[in-house]
Every structure is written in structure tokens, then in C-alpha cells.
Design a binder for these strands. Structure first.
Lengths: 251, 251
DNA sequence: CGTCTTTTTGACCATTTTCAATCAGTGTGG
DNA sequence: CCACACTGATTGAAAATGGTCAAAAAGACG
């Protein structure tokens, strides 16, 4: 479950980064590309279930996801777990820990996950030497904050069915925005245990709730994955509308 | 309820800012002080209940709280409200909206609230011209994110009693960190409705839960305010320990 | 084929919500 | 000073939502 494959250190120049060709991300000019290429120290891939960062630890690195999914979570002493948010390509991992000290949440891979690696010790350069990138990092932090606001509203005030519909609509929207056209990418790589721990519900009740969505033909559950069949239906039930697709930065 | 007093525009030079003398905040050098003084365009005070920022609006300003309390919240279409976090002296209001576009939450004063005013249109200068302050802004965003992580864990996974204990311990910690010695400041200026909307519980159940904390002599409820009598007791029940007091920046 | 993980179901139990009042404190106008 | 309106706290009872326990079914995989 927790095994971490030996990091395969590789190199991809940032100018050839597959994410940069995605129109969903803002374009970098040459100077920015050069700075980031320089900041980047490597790249590696882990298996599903691997822990990238551990609650309480002080990692020397931070990462940007190149491909795959992960999630952030916190646990109480007796093991109750809350998933805080999902981490998809373009997302930054470990910023909180880099700025504030130790990590206060765990990050675990959901799929094979490839990230590129930055040194925490050199992060401050961004603010000292590259205002536009520093702005991007702040932007990324503000975006995460906004998403957490929405999750908190959902967990605090929506019913089980509304919450489930919101979560699946939200996740579907995120893959949609990445414009990954392969049909395989439209399947959300989460088990019902993950959904339960995200919604703040028990596994049993989550199952019964998802069953209702399946019976209404809004989603399909197959192969430990969820396929969204009717995004408008989910939005109607949850009362949540996605924001218009953003053009966002990443490091 | 929603009346906003006419802003009283005043001026306090940032070098004489009462918050700067508080050792809980990091010191600024002269250049930083000069920049911030220049960035600041005014100061004003609103009454309890006033709305500083409205969900859906695009404010031309952002604020730093000089004194008083406020809270951030979101509502569902049918009126269910979730309080996301509380805003205390030194906190920045409106960063999300400034970076990402329109505000997606409301900010409302809980007490008489004095803020100093910045122009959103000039915010980008911070990243272009003053790396150390840009770093501070990112730090502030990362801190808010961490707090939201904790709230989400609490609302998602703690029982009603644990949640209530956590919230009161958290709020008590925040005033504690501000080192406001006047006993009046140790009373948390929230009604049980606010507590309910923060915990994601109904008002009735919140009342019954708080009553248990009162009967255990952990808190006292008086005058629409809450006094924390036994912070260790609250921490024990909630299983939450505050982080060591931080030395934090503000604008 | 056996083992493991994940999903599914039923029955029963606990927590929390909703509804409906009541009570206490505060400020207003008569 | 008192009646009145208003906000916030409190309580009891009934109803609903969601949790726990126990077990089985369905795939996935070596």
C-alpha cells in the first residue's frame, strides 16, 4: 500500500513540457521558462498508494504534478481521515510546508504519478528574482483557498446526496478543464472510501448515496472508478455551478 | 442588520501602526514601511453587522484589519450559511477576489471593525517591486489555507462536541496570540448562531452541545459572548493542539 | 483456486434536525 | 414606568438523516 518506487530521476526541459502545450495553462516567456528550468532539479514517478509527503515531516522538496492524480488528507489520532482536496496535473505540492514549516497534511498518489521536483531551499529566489512567477505562486495559493472554501461549504451545509453530487461535478470539471481527451481520463480514479473520506460520511452511507446517483443515471461506477454521465444533473442536485474555465499558471 | 456606517476616512502612518508594536508580528524595515504607507489609501470603521465584501461582487479595495473581528461566509441558494473563518487584526481581507476576480464569499463585521484600505489596482506592484512583501502575501495565503484544512478536518470528521471544543480552542488561541491583555478581548464575540454556522450544525444542537461545555466548566456564556475558562480542557476534548505562536507578517 | 480489495445490502442504533415554545435581556416609544 | 418588539439562549418531543455492525457478493490478481 505504502510502497514508494525508487525515484527514476529523469530530465525534461521545461520548454518541452507536455503541460505547456495545454491552452488551459498560461504561456511562459523565454526568461520565465529559463528560470523554471533552472529551478527544477529532476522528475520522478511513484505508484498508486505511495506517500509523497507525510503529515508532520519537513520535506526538502516541493513538486509540480506532470501527470496523474493524488490527494491531500489529514487524520485524527484515532484514525478518522479527511481528504482535503485532490491534486491534478499542474498543481503544486508542498507549498504550505515550504512557507510555514512542517507539512500538516499527507499527500498520497491515487494513480501512477509523475512530478517534477524543486528544492525548497531555493524557493525564496522566486520572490527575490522573479515577480511574475511569485505572483503565480500566490495565485495558486489563492485558488486552493477558494476551492477549500467551497469544500467547507459543502461538507458543512449540504446533505449527503448534494455533497456527493457536488464532489463528482467538481472532479469532473477539473479533468474537463485539463482537456485530456482520452476517454480513460474521464474516469475519476477514486474508490468509494475516498469519496466517503472527502464528504465526511461513513463508507456505508456513501455507498447508498452513490447508488442513488447511479440509479438516476447520473454516474456509473466501474472498475473502482467513477464515470460522470450527466454533469448537468449533478450540478442541478448539488446547486453548484463551475466557474468558467480559467487560464491558470503553474511552475 | 446590514447597515454600513459612512466610512470615516482617516490616516495613521504605518510607522505608528498599533499592530507593529505587537511582537507577534514581524518587524518591517524602513523601505518596507515606506512602501506600505504609500500603498495604503485610507482607513475606516464599520459597525457590527456591516458587510465589507459581498459574495459575487468585485471590490476595488482590499483591507487589513486594524482592530475588531469579522468573518467570512458563503451561502447556498436556499439560505444555508457556512462560516469559513474568522478575520482578526492583522488579517488581509479580499486577497482571493483581488487575484482571482470576483469575491466568492461575504465578509461581515462581528464587532466595530477598523480596517486600512488598499487599492486592488495597485496590488500587482507588490510582486513587481517588493519581493519581501510579495513573499509575505503568499505566506498569508498559505496560512489561511492551512487553517481551512484544519476546519475541514473538523467539520468533516469530528463529533459535535469535539467540533465545538476545537472551534473555541482555535478562537481562543487566536486572541491569545494577539496578546491583547484587556480582559474584554478575551471574550469571543460570537453568538451561538455563528458557532452553529461554523460547525455545520443546527442552532438547537449547537446550543445543547455548548451547554455541555458550560456544565463541564470549560466555557462560560454571557452577554452574547463566550469566555474560555479551560483551554486545556477544550484541547483535550477536541484532540487539537495549537501550533507554537508564530511571528507573522501583515501589510 | 484462494486471497485481497471494493462494493453492496439489511437491520438496528445514534446523532442531529426540525418544530414549537418559552425565557431572558435590551432598546423603543408612549 | 410599562408595553412592545426584537434578538439570542434554552428546552422538549418527534422525525429524519446518517452511523455502526455484520455479512455477503463481485471483481482483481497471483
Amino acid at each position: 500500500m505504502n510502497k514508494q518506487v525508487e525515484p527514476k530521476i529523469g530530465r525534461i526541459s521545461c520548454s518541452g513540457c507536455p503541460l505547456r502545450s495545454n491552452s488551459h495553462f498560461r504561456e511562459f516567456d523565454d526568461k520565465e521558462l529559463e528560470f523554471v528550468s533552472n529551478f527544477k532539479t529532476g522528475e520522478f514517478t511513484v505508484n498508486p498508494g505511495a506517500t509523497l509527503m507525510m503529515e508532520g515531516a519537513r520535506s526538502a522538496h516541493l513538486y509540480t504534478v506532470l501527470s496523474g492524480w493524488a490527494f491531500r488528507s489529514k487524520v485524527l489520532e484515532d484514525g478518522r481521515r479527511q481528504i482535503l482536496n485532490y491534486v491534478l496535473p499542474g498543481d503544486l505540492i508542498g507549498l504550505q510546508g515550504s512557507l510555514l514549516g512542517e507539512m500538516q497534511h499527507t499527500v498520497e498518489a491515487l494513480t501512477p504519478l509523475t512530478v517534477c521536483v524543486f528544492e525548497r531551499s531555493r524557493l525564496a529566489d522566486v520572490w527575490e528574482r522573479f515577480g511574475s512567477l511569485a505572483y503565480d505562486v500566490t495565485w495558486i495559493a489563492a485558488r486552493e483557498e477558494r476551492i477549500l472554501d467551497e469544500h467547507l461549504l459543502s461538507v458543512g451545509r449540504r446533505t449527503a446526496l448534494e455533497r456527493a453530487a457536488y464532489l463528482l461535478a467538481y472532479l469532473h470539471q477539473r479533468v474537463e478543464n485539463l482537456q485530456e481527451l482520452a476517454p480513460e481520463h474521464r474516469l475519476l480514479p477514486v474508490t468509494q472510501t475516498h469519496v466517503a473520506d472527502t464528504l465526511g460520511l461513513s463508507l456505508v452511507h456513501t455507498n447508498k448515496t452513490l447508488r442513488k446517483l447511479v440509479q438516476s443515471n447520473l454516474i456509473r461506477w466501474m472498475d473502482s472508478r467513477c464515470e460522470v454521465l450527466d454533469i448537468e444533473g449533478l450540478q442541478r442536485i448539488s446547486g453548484w455551478k463551475s466557474s468558467p474555465p480559467e487560464c491558470r499558471p503553474f511552475l
